[in-house]
Each structure stands twice: as structure tokens, then as C-alpha cells.
Simulated scan of single mutants.
Amino acid sequence: MRLRVRLTPRASRNMLEGVVRDAEGRALLQLRLKAPPVEGAANTALIAFLATELKLRKRDIDLVSGTKSRVKILQLNGDPSELVRRLERWIAQAA
């Protein structure tokens, strides 16, 4: 399953802000992380954060594109229906 994320680094805390739309109308998860965007620290923190929140192993999350961009596409490996259920639950809790 592919997941689009808009990441804001150097935040005061790690958190899911919610779901936003990009200029083309595609949904993205809006995330804030404490890690700085230096030498891949924010990307590493993003994978660790998603793994913890979605109860996945870090190796089950791959950064497909956006290594130097705020908008990132990640590949989540696992049962798609279970991943969707976990994402929906996490988004509902953040609201």
C-alpha cells in the first residue's frame, strides 16, 4: 500500500495533524516530527514514527520518493485491509 505524507520537520513534538489535500486534490497525511531535515534524520524519524503508530516493523516501510521533499510517498508492506484499518483508527484518534 502506498501512503502520501506531508512532513514538517523541527516541530515541538511528533504528531499526526490530520489529512490534507494537495493542489491536485490527493489526500496526504500531515505529520510533524521533532527531527531536523539534516542528513536523512527526518526520513529515519518518519519511518520509526509510522512503524510505532501503525504497529509495523521499520523494514516494512520503504521511502519510495521525496527524500529531500516535504511530500513523501511511502510503501507500507502488509495486509492492505489491516493497514487501512490501522490508519483509519489512528486518524480518528488524532481528530
Results as ranks from 00 to 15, higher is better:
residue 1 M to R: 03
residue 4 R to F: 14
residue 5 V to D: 10
residue 6 R to D: 07
residue 8 T to D: 01
residue 8 T to H: 10
residue 9 P to K: 00
residue 9 P to C: 01
residue 11 A to K: 00
residue 11 A to V: 01
residue 11 A to S: 02
residue 11 A to G: 04
residue 12 S to I: 04
residue 15 M to D: 05
residue 17 E to D: 12
residue 18 G to A: 04
residue 19 V to Q: 00
residue 20 V to P: 02
residue 20 V to C: 09
residue 20 V to G: 01
residue 23 A to R: 14
residue 24 E to C: 09
residue 24 E to G: 06
residue 24 E to D: 10
residue 25 G to N: 07
residue 25 G to S: 11
residue 27 A to V: 05
residue 28 L to F: 10
residue 29 L to S: 05
residue 29 L to K: 02
residue 29 L to H: 01
residue 30 Q to A: 15
residue 31 L to D: 02
residue 32 R to A: 11
residue 32 R to Q: 14
residue 32 R to S: 11
residue 32 R to D: 04
residue 34 K to L: 07
residue 34 K to M: 12
residue 34 K to A: 08
residue 34 K to G: 06
residue 35 A to Y: 00
residue 35 A to K: 00
residue 38 V to W: 08
residue 38 V to K: 09
residue 38 V to Q: 07
residue 39 E to W: 07
residue 40 G to F: 01
residue 40 G to C: 02
residue 40 G to N: 05
residue 43 N to E: 12
residue 43 N to K: 11
residue 43 N to Y: 12
residue 44 T to K: 05
residue 44 T to E: 07
residue 45 A to P: 09
residue 47 I to C: 09
residue 47 I to K: 12
residue 49 F to N: 02
residue 49 F to V: 03
residue 50 L to D: 03
residue 50 L to A: 06
residue 50 L to I: 04
residue 52 T to V: 12
residue 53 E to M: 15
residue 54 L to D: 08
residue 54 L to A: 07
residue 54 L to F: 11
residue 54 L to S: 07
residue 55 K to L: 08
residue 57 R to T: 11
residue 58 K to H: 14
residue 59 R to T: 09
residue 60 D to A: 15
residue 60 D to G: 13
residue 61 I to N: 02
residue 61 I to P: 05
residue 62 D to A: 15
residue 64 V to Q: 03
residue 65 S to G: 06
residue 66 G to S: 11
residue 68 K to D: 13
residue 68 K to A: 14
residue 70 R to Y: 13
residue 71 V to S: 11
residue 72 K to C: 06
residue 72 K to L: 03
residue 72 K to G: 01
residue 76 L to D: 02
residue 77 N to V: 07
residue 79 D to C: 15
residue 80 P to R: 06
residue 82 E to L: 13
residue 83 L to A: 06
residue 84 V to H: 09
residue 85 R to I: 01
residue 86 R to S: 15
residue 87 L to G: 05
residue 88 E to W: 05
residue 89 R to Q: 15
residue 90 W to I: 08
residue 91 I to T: 14
residue 91 I to N: 08
residue 92 A to I: 01
residue 93 Q to E: 14
residue 94 A to Q: 05
residue 95 A to T: 06
